[in-house]
Design a protein around this nucleic acid. Structure first.
Lengths: 126, 126
DNA sequence: TGCGCTTGCTAAGTTTGTCAAGCATCTACC
DNA sequence: GGTAGATGCTTGACAAACTTAGCAAGCGCA
């Protein structure tokens, strides 16, 4: 339909094709996958996923599929357009300096004192 | 309303409370958070999140909030009930409380001021 | 030929995240 | 008093995820 001809044999790029390829590679039917996920993903829904009618299934669904189809969870998450936590962040000092505080295991009192102080600093600055 | 009295000062356990505490700790209004996320999270939606009316916001939303509120993305994902890929078992320190400062939005001055203040606090206490 | 079973798919419905608009309350300043 | 702005919250609408029931084509088998 909306679907032109996509090279099914080479490496698939969108989520639906990844799922479909993984499933057919394992020689499973859609209903078998439904079983394999413990009914967490219905065969009807799987069909919609593979045909691209659903573009962003919830991580829960993706996790079930990742285990049933032996595809890494992160891959599916990424392909669904979700931001994948940690797992290497290229540059962005991000944790660099922040770690100073993180590593330092603050006590609750210290945390509160620092937060108050920070609020004070910022209020001063406007 | 539906909300009994929940100890707001101690460490919150559900998503809404985590978000609310992070926001109030930073002394931001809901509309300021909306701005801070570049309008990716509306103040109306934020209100529903904090009050627990929404239990599973999309990872996209959680990511925006994590950066705006300086709370680790993984924490929010976990609290929203999503499975977090890889990333060691949370068993150990992780950052729990210190992460409140996760601090990619501390300026260098603020960081130094806070570190000095922390050193001062600890020297006082022995 | 007909029956049973499987496979992939779709049509229709429910649920839920998300937003725009607007209301109620509080503060502050005239 | 009045009115202006900020803050938290609710409401109504829409879209997208997800479910349930069921259909059409294919298979083997008596």
């Amino acid at each position: 339909m909306t679907n032109g001809d996509i090279d099914q044999t080479s490496r698939p790029t969108n989520l639906g094709q990844i799922i479909k390829k993984a499933r057919t590679d394992m020689k499973l039917s859609q209903r078998e996958v439904e079983e394999a996920t413990g009914k967490e993903v219905s065969n009807a829904y799987l069909s919609q996923l593979e045909s691209g009618k659903i573009t962003k299934p919830s991580p829960h669904i993706l996790y079930a599929l990742s285990t049933a189809l032996a595809v890494p969870y992160e891959t599916l998450m990424e392909r669904a357009g979700y931001i994948v936590p940690s797992t290497e962040r290229p540059e962005s000092a991000k944790h660099g300096r922040a770690a100073t505080f993180a590593v330092d295991n603050l006590t609750a009192e210290e945390e509160n004192a620092l937060l108050d102080y920070l609020a004070y600093l910022r209020s001063k600055k406007g």
